[in-house]
Write a protein that binds this DNA or RNA. Structure first.
Lengths: 351, 351
DNA sequence: TTAATCTATGAAATCGATTCCATGGAATCG
DNA sequence: CGATTCCATGGAATCGATTTCATAGATTAA
């Protein structure tokens, strides 16, 4: 192993470990000679401080934890990338953890990070399955432990933690307006799981946007997915078989959209022709699709940056104001004129 | 903070810290009563051991580092996911780091992990920019420090470390055979950067497959990309403008393929009609494309599993045999009959 | 010139666990 | 029954850094 310790450095440099430590941490109470000799010794021995020992004493680890819901979802990997870059710029190492949309795995990761005494946590919280967005006991413990923490993307309503979220009101308004002007009246919504606050927000904003556009809301046009591919596929079949024959659908995240599009392709249902589609999250797969899918997208770079800034503020014991970013709508050919009433994709349900 | 220490637990339980520690680590030399009382105390106080202190003394961290080239590349996020799941099953926490295809960021991450004394490292090595696949000095240090390490996906030729890679010979043979049987003779190759061993392997296998199929190799049909989207776009333009008018192209990874497909779409060059395309890595964006892209894919789940197993073997001081996984070719409609000679995508170069 | 303040330094305490070593009592052996 | 082994346990050392505290010497103030 790397058996070189600060004592070795001190010995070679002819100073005490205390002085060596001061030089290494940039403490001004060091003479130029001492500095030079310690630096030479470090170089000579290839000394690399033991982070464990260092942070055991100093209670600082220069690292933060980032918990996301799913590494393989480009939405979150973009977020992770942004957080990592900004944390890096602030001299912090980021540990990325994966909850797999599962509150048990989340708690596991949080516990390890807590025991490793990270300087702070940025969390996309998984609520408990049943009660919408309710904190787990481990989450409570983190809060009690007073480790700086901020939520990003999602929140839990029963825990007061600074949070950075995105709202989709305006973007959904635009999307619905675009659909309406293309003659769509009955618009379905494939939403996310109850435990995610984003699912609720998107669903509410959807209903609000319908009303704002003078269209009726209808609970029967709402499908409860879980933000994962398979449930998108289910939603796609539900949509095709729907008795009300909606002519358009909005899908609340990219994995579900991809699942849905795959099903529709298999069943030879024609997106853009038979019905129109708008999906959340601007990912390659949706842009490569033919026709390209109109999307409601978030600025994940901004979200990551804001999350890091908020966390740094909490660490510095300052107030971190909650921030709500706006989303933007991009019209693409998956939105087209609604087919004449009562002639909607009837032959498309089975190939 | 979590000010509860093992001494508090010991005091409440009425035992010494030594005994408390034994109970916590499952040491058999403990009486049932002691065990019960310590466990009760732990429960009561909500004690969570300080990982720093623990591993400072025990020189074990129950964690490994995984360094990948690019979090946002689905190829690597799939690999990361697989590694994480298998490490988790073995009781190891995984720290995921992102090199951004950059050896400086790689070294940074490796240094932090070294100073944190992880139990092992799984690395997709970035070589030095110029000299093909040469180790950096930090990489050398890791090797010298004798921290268990394995390479995955890529290797460095001047460092002897167990490695798990994938070879693409058979899959490329099949791909070329499929192209040939569709009448393609001049097949271009958009490859990766010199510093990645996978780039070299794929390029060589490509040439070998041409020969095996009785087709001539030609350096002029090779474009040197860098595995990133932008260079794929460049490659796409290079392909369209190529004086030899190749009728098919194989692209060495998904980000480059996506970059290329976007360009072709913009320029209204018709994939599958004007020319045929095969790409490495089976990612959603390539499957959603119209027409779906034929791919050469690796089993990343198997690769991740093998990497974890190899690392565990090294940690146990056993021999870890290098493993080469095979790739598989999936024919899709992006491969079609070659257009008649000399009529190739001439109007496609500019819209 | 003496007192007061600074500066750079080292010895030793400390962070919170694990582990080595010694020990007293119970169990086993001859 | 005395000697030996085994068990559970506690005291103290330890891991490798940082930080407190005391101090010798230099500098400034009065």
């Amino acid at each position: 192993m790397n058996a070189v310790t600060i004592k070795d450095v001190a010995r070679i440099a002819g100073v005490s470990p205390a002085t060596a430590s001061r030089v290494l941490s940039g403490n001004p109470a060091t003479s130029p000679e001492a500095r030079a000799r310690v630096e030479a010794a470090v170089e000579e021995l290839g000394f690399l401080p033991n982070a464990q020992a260092r942070s055991l004493r100093s209670t600082k680890t220069d690292s933060i934890a980032l918990l996301i819901s799913d590494v393989r979802n480009p939405y979150f990997s973009d977020l992770a990338h942004a957080v990592e870059q900004h944390a890096r710029a602030a001299g912090l190492m980021t540990f990325i953890g994966n909850a797999n949309e599962d509150s048990a795995q989340q708690d596991d990761f949080l516990a390890t990070m807590l025991s490793r005494r990270v300087d702070g946590m940025i969390v996309v919280p998984q609520g408990l399955g049943e009660q919408a967005g309710t904190a787990t006991s481990m989450m409570r413990r983190i809060v009690d432990s007073e480790i700086p923490m901020v939520f990003v993307d999602r929140t839990l309503h029963d825990i007061a933690v600074p949070n950075i979220t995105a709202q989709s009101r305006e973007a959904l308004n635009e999307a619905i307006a675009a659909l309406k002007s293309n003659g769509h009246r009955r618009i379905a919504f494939i939403g996310g799981p109850k435990h995610a606050s984003t699912a609720l927000e998107r669903h509410r904003a959807f209903d609000a946007a319908l009303e704002a556009n003078g269209l009726p809301t209808d609970a029967a046009l709402h499908f409860a997915g879980d933000f994962r591919t398979a449930s998108g596929a289910d939603g796609a079949r539900w949509f095709l078989a729907h008795p009300l024959a909606p002519s358009a659908v909005i899908i609340a995240d990219a994995p579900m959209a991809i699942g849905a599009l795959k099903v529709w392709r298999e069943l030879r249902a024609k997106v853009g022709t038979d019905f129109s589609v708008v999906a959340f999250d601007e990912v390659d797969a949706l842009l490569m699709h033919d026709p390209p899918i109109a999307t409601i997208s978030h600025n994940l770079e901004a979200m990551g940056r804001a999350a890091v800034q908020a966390l740094l503020a909490v660490i510095r014991q300052e107030e971190a104001d909650p921030l709500e970013l706006v989303s933007s709508f991009t019209l693409r050919p998956s939105v087209a004129t609604a087919p004449p009433e009562n002639a909607v994709h009837t032959e498309g349900t089975r190939p």
